[in-house]
Design a protein around this nucleic acid. Sequence first.
DNA 1: GGTATACTGGATATAAAGGTCCAGATATCC
DNA 2: GGATATCTGGACCTTTATATCCAGTATACC
Lengths: 152, 152
Amino acid sequence: MNTRGENGSIISQTGEYALRAIVFLAMDPGIAYTTLQISVATKVPGAYLSKVMQALVRAGLVQSQRGFGGGFLLTRSPDSIALLEVLDAVDPIPRIRSCPLGLESHGINLCALHKKLDDATATIETVFRETTIGDLLVRPTQSIPLCNASQQ
Amino acid sequence: MNTRGENGSIISQTGEYALRAIVFLAMDPGIAYTTLQISVATKVPGAYLSKVMQALVRAGLVQSQRGFGGGFLLTRSPDSIALLEVLDAVDPIPRIRSCPLGLESHGINLCALHKKLDDATATIETVFRETTIGDLLVRPTQSIPLCNASQQ
DNA sequence: GGTATACTGGATATAAAGGTCCAGATATCC
DNA sequence: GGATATCTGGACCTTTATATCCAGTATACC
């Protein structure tokens, strides 16, 4: 019913865009990049990226600077930014907090289903909480990752 | 950018509907239930559930019977149906198979990002592959789960 | 101060997911 | 064989996520 032709990820397209932008900025901490520069490098539609960056600024993850020489800049060290924070800034991972069916007449087994679904959600939430942007950066001293192998 | 007010799950709304229906049918294997009955019990919009059931029939998970006394029926034992099969029937979990940016000029760090995202996806895919509908059913011999506690 | 650069925020457009409706096809019962 | 029950499939509507556009504002340079 849903082809998911474009997105192709468990997180929203917007969430992915936000992560791409933050990772890109993290590659040169201290240097400001414009929306256009980030857009080209990360292949995110410029006009939409503009909205995404605004959300990241509001969340305090990124600092903006207008005018000539302006652009966007991380406010913190990449090692201190969890992937989850970035996702939360634009599109939080939805947890199942109450039974979607209501309590009255719902079967106990459907309850077990939602427990399982939320457990799975909690698992990836934990992964994203414990992984930082810094973890994704390839340092010069480290070996080159299997980039070609895992993509082609 | 996305409130996700309704769905509230890491899988699509449609995927959740499909799971609810299958779990419901699994509670009484061998008995046919109509769209209306399933709809009421699982609180899935009837007209839409009709579409979801069609997909489950096409996938071979469910058998349909028209006319008086008809309805839907599981084709297999609940213990042999993985959650992943149900999701695949309506809305497969999207894996990241190739770099969303293309290879040429993309940063190696964005590659690491997608690797991480796909790893997380693979994790929940595995959970859903190894959990069966039967696992969600509460047998009479088992104790009552913490249904009220985890929902209200 | 004028000009060019760049973010901000609101309005609007497009695409996809979710949802409805109904005529048609089968099946059962009497 | 008529009446009723039920799934099927196509057309259509609604809502949400994604994406675009542009006027406004702040900043830097000369």
